[in-house]
């Protein structure tokens, strides 16, 4: 070999050859072929998502949750690798919680946006999470999209995932400024349905989350356009293995209290 020291890339060449010849398949990640959307309406933000999770061509969860919690006033839809969207939203939501303990103030959407984009940019697109971030804070309603490489956009209506083209066609023809809550939910549901029915990667039910000033409404399975058509009349039964002898629930005491009132910056 002519290599003058350092790294050897012989195996890269070999692996490329094996893939090219079809002897081995390159490894792939579990992706959530997804439709996720969001829009700004009269007094807040509405987020929407389908509930199908896939591994290749197999539907591995028919009713998963893709609208993730970030803060009481901020939620985030995730598309891309399921593990990455889950991990990145969980991590940032805990950073936001600590930040709230520190400042004693409500989290802002821009804070969540910056934390997410910094993480994703640092991993140069290898953390494959495409997100629609929405929330209402002291500066009003906000909607952003975040791409796996860390770029962000600020939009009045947004779609992401493999069903984004279908969903965007609904938004582009029906969105207008100053929608009411009910109009907004209707358009979001319609956009997700466009993804469910026209994109192979999306399916099952519609989840919706309505965020308004000081209020949130998580409408899990807001619409179920694909109900089960057959359930065995006999039902299912399991053989008795371990018996529950006693049930006692002890509610945990809140140990940390967030003080909302007062200006923490002033002495």
């Amino acid at each position: 070999m002519e290599n003058s020291g350092g790294f050897s890339f012989d195996l890269c060449k070999r692996n490329g050859w094996l893939v090219e010849k079809g002897i081995v398949k390159p490894p792939s990640f579990t992706k959530t072929g997804t439709t996720i959307v969001g829009l700004v309406f009269q007094d807040g933000v509405i987020l929407g998502a389908d509930t199908r999770a896939t591994a290749g061509s197999i539907v591995c969860d028919k009713n998963c949750e893709k609208i993730h919690y970030m803060a009481p006033n901020i939620y985030c839809c995730g598309a891309g690798t399921a593990a990455d969207t889950e991990a990145v939203t969980d991590m940032v939501s805990s950073q936001l919680q600590l930040h709230r303990y520190h400042t004693g103030r409500e989290s802002r959407v821009i804070t969540a946006l910056t934390l997410l984009k910094k993480h994703l940019f640092g991993y140069q697109g290898y953390v494959s999470a495409a997100l629609v971030l929405g929330g209402v804070d002291c500066t009003g309603p906000h909607l952003h999209t975040i791409y796996p490489h860390g770029s962000t956009d600020t939009l009045p209506f947004a779609t992401m995932g493999s069903g984004s083209l279908a969903a965007m066609s609904v938004f582009e023809s029906k969105y207008k400024e100053g929608l009411t809550r009910d109009e907004g939910i209707k358009i979001v549901t319609e956009a997700i349905c466009a993804g469910i029915f026209n994109d192979l990667g999306s399916g099952s039910n519609v989840d919706v989350c309505v965020l308004t000033k000081g209020h949130k409404e998580y409408l899990r399975n807001n619409l179920m356009p694909n109900p089960r058509t057959y359930v065995s009349a006999k039902g299912y039964s399991f053989s008795k293995k371990t018996e529950v002898l006693m049930t006692k629930v002890t509610p945990l005491k809140e140990r940390v209290e967030v003080i909302e009132a007062g200006d923490a910056m002033e002495e």
């Binding site: 791409y147 490489h149 995932g161 493999s162 984004s164 083209l165 994109d199």
Partner: peptide
């Protein structure tokens, strides 16, 4: 999905 539309391509 249309293979030409690669949503994972850098923006």
């Amino acid at each position: 999905m249309d293979p030409k539309i690669d949503s994972s391509a850098p923006i």
